[in-house]
Design a protein around this nucleic acid. Structure first.
Lengths: 90, 90
DNA sequence: TTCTTATTTAGATGTTTGGCTAAATATATA
DNA sequence: TATATATTTAGCCAAACATCTAAATAAGAA
């Protein structure tokens, strides 16, 4: 989950997740939302993928990225653990 | 909220939050949980404070740090926003 | 006031990160 | 096969970050 927290620390990467929330997209479509070079966006996508926050799938020439929510749920769980004082940790 | 996400990206700082979940502590007591110099822990505490994740209060010679959950709740809200596809953003 | 304890500030250093351009790879099409 | 399109990889650089030691500040005790 450390990689996920690190991935979430960057505003561009959080924005990518918000964009993917609405619909899955190719790397190029995602890049079109930013004033950042495609290689840089590709690098961000790779970090998000390593963190388990997105999935990628090649479709012809393009690679389609989609949200993967399992790890997000894990992070939410961790955060709730911080908030809920009464609940005893294992 | 960007500062909170950045603060959460570091494992030491997340550990500090977990420690403070159980009870508020002085900077020194917190530092005793780590093999890191006190100035470094002090720096982490300052970042957590800037991010609104902890509060500090002087009590005599010591400074007591405590969890502040409001921003954690905001972050959780953001994360839920990522997960819940159906919910339309404003 | 002087000494001790608790904590932070200052300044230095090595590592990580986010961005870039240029080159490489993968696929589709002519 | 040759060319075009989509994306990633490689290599570079400046800024940010995590850590350290030494010095400064704040409060209490002698």
């Amino acid at each position: 989950m450390n990689e996920a927290f690190k991935a979430l620390a960057d505003p561009t990467r959080r924005h990518i997740l918000q964009i993917l929330r609405d619909k899955s997209m190719t790397a190029g479509e995602i890049a079109d939302h930013f004033n950042i070079s495609k290689p840089s966006i590709s690098h961000h996508l790779n970090l998000l993928k390593q963190a388990g926050l997105v999935l990628d799938e090649r479709q012809g020439q393009s690679i389609i990225y989609s949200l993967h929510t399992t790890v997000v749920e894990d992070v939410i769980g961790w955060m709730f653990g911080i908030i809920n004082k009464q609940e005893k940790r294992d």
